[in-house]
Design a protein around this nucleic acid. Structure first.
Lengths: 263, 263
DNA sequence: AATCAAAAAAATATCTAGATAATTGATAAC
DNA sequence: GTTATCAATTATCTAGATATTTTTTTGATT
């Protein structure tokens, strides 16, 4: 058979039906989502494949730290836990490989991506490089509608309690979602969806580190105030200031996480 | 079963046995490789899984343009062409998703990632952003050994004929490999393997566009001279000049490819 | 006849269960 | 100790079953 014969029907696909790497109907901002199975089922009924269901659950469990870094992911066990056959499980793990949350070693299976201080340092550094460019570009190119989205994202974040428990030990998942949304909005109009993909991926990897670092004793910094300052600089289209504040924001959080990281 | 039970043996994995997302024993610089099955078999014997074999071949066929952008990839046909069952094929396609060479739509299968002028423009822009930072960092941090690697990579590239045929119509695959190696070496010591991963991915995506653009009428520019100039600036640790030359190099090639892209 | 919607049929993607192959760990021989 | 061999575990693969999407057919309506 010739390669040209691979596609024997439908030589033209309607462009509107496809977008890049959709894994399900949801947006890529789903990492911090709080929907449980039932809510999901109500929204999507049975339309989601087992692979995607497993993908979503595994991703959550890795980011949240339920699955320990470097832990071997044995297909047989995953099958039982996530209630699926081995093909969907393998496929879900293969997809998670793109997010660098799972590592695949040929003939030797999968494991949760390991963590290290070095990698965290790289992560932080790289995020700062990329988001600095992206926020500068957004400030340069962003529309008025974008400005409004920034304001809105910041407002919604500010109304969200950071913790659920009184003693600041249990993070609020909705805050996580809103926080990610705020930061992604800041760079949303940088003009490169590729860049946004990278930043999104780095953000998720970063959350995992945050979750892994001590669950207690969160920083005393007034994070809401930092967000307000960034927001103001962005709205004033003060590129330099925005970058400085953003870098500082990330550096502070990063230093804190690094200190708390189980050695 | 509890999640903690997932890993019941091997609580500690020897770190040396794992590195991030290895898909096979080869380096990630394999995109332009010219090894055929037999050569590969000689090097690796039968140790490569069917999945990885299919992954490598599919990747080559997509980058080289044999598989047309937006083409639907039907499992049944791929099974016949690449001589494998559906599970390995699906897994290979899922892995290719990370490289953004294949697109997955839940319940609707896979297709070759589409191309567009817009995406190419984004690709070029993003590469320039990322590689500019990376080369600056390399110049800042690079060791003497790195300088030597740059010299060597440039030398090897310079000795390589760009085309196989006399009429400049057939690109030399070894040149492609050496070219990629040169550009990756320039940024190799930027201090972030994450950044290198991104650049590597963008480079591969970019090659595909180059392959897709008209096979004939390659630019008249003296590309070897451009490489020499970049090399010199890097060795002189002249960050600004190196970036300028690199950006110019990419921009020129990009403009050419864009013009040739089948509309 | 042309248009549309519903239903049926075909094609295709996805999944399961069990077979095969590779790796790992234990044991034995040196 | 070190290497070779065997057993157990686990990853990978195949073949066919099931579910979903896509295409075709049918039939009613204008």
């Amino acid at each position: 058979m010739k390669i040209a014969d691979l596609e024997m029907t439908n030589p033209k696909l309607t462009e509107s039906k496809f977008t890049h790497n959709r894994r399900d109907g949801a947006s890529s901002m789903d990492a911090g989502n709080t929907m449980n199975e039932n809510e999901n089922a109500m929204l999507e009924s049975s339309s989601e494949s087992i692979t995607i269901r497993a993908y979503g659950r595994l991703k959550q469990d890795i980011i949240s730290g339920k699955l320990i870094p470097s832990q071997k992911l044995k297909i047989e066990n995953l099958r039982r836990v996530y209630d699926a056959g081995s093909s969907p499980i393998r496929e879900a793990l293969s997809l998670l490989t793109s997010d660098h949350l799972v590592e695949r070693i040929d003939q030797r299976g999968f494991r949760v991506a390991p963590v290290s201080e070095d990698e965290f340092a790289e992560l932080l550094k790289t995020r700062i490089w990329l988001e600095s460019i992206a926020v500068q570009q957004s400030i340069l190119l962003g529309s008025e509608a974008w400005e409004e989205q920034v304001v809105l994202a910041n407002y919604r974040l500010s109304r969200m309690p950071r913790f659920i428990a009184e003693d600041n030990t249990v993070a609020n998942p909705s805050w996580e979602t809103a926080h990610k949304h705020f930061h992604m909005t800041l760079i949303a109009e940088c003009g490169s969806s590729i860049m946004l993909r990278f930043c999104n991926q780095l953000y998720d990897q970063n959350i995992r580190y945050r979750q892994l670092s001590a669950k207690k004793a969160y920083p005393e910094r007034d994070i809401a105030e930092e967000h307000n300052a960034i927001c103001d600089a962005v709205l004033a289209r003060d590129s330099q200031k925005a970058v400085d504040l953003l870098v500082c924001h990330y550096q502070n959080t990063g230093d804190f996480v690094l200190k708390q990281l189980p050695k």
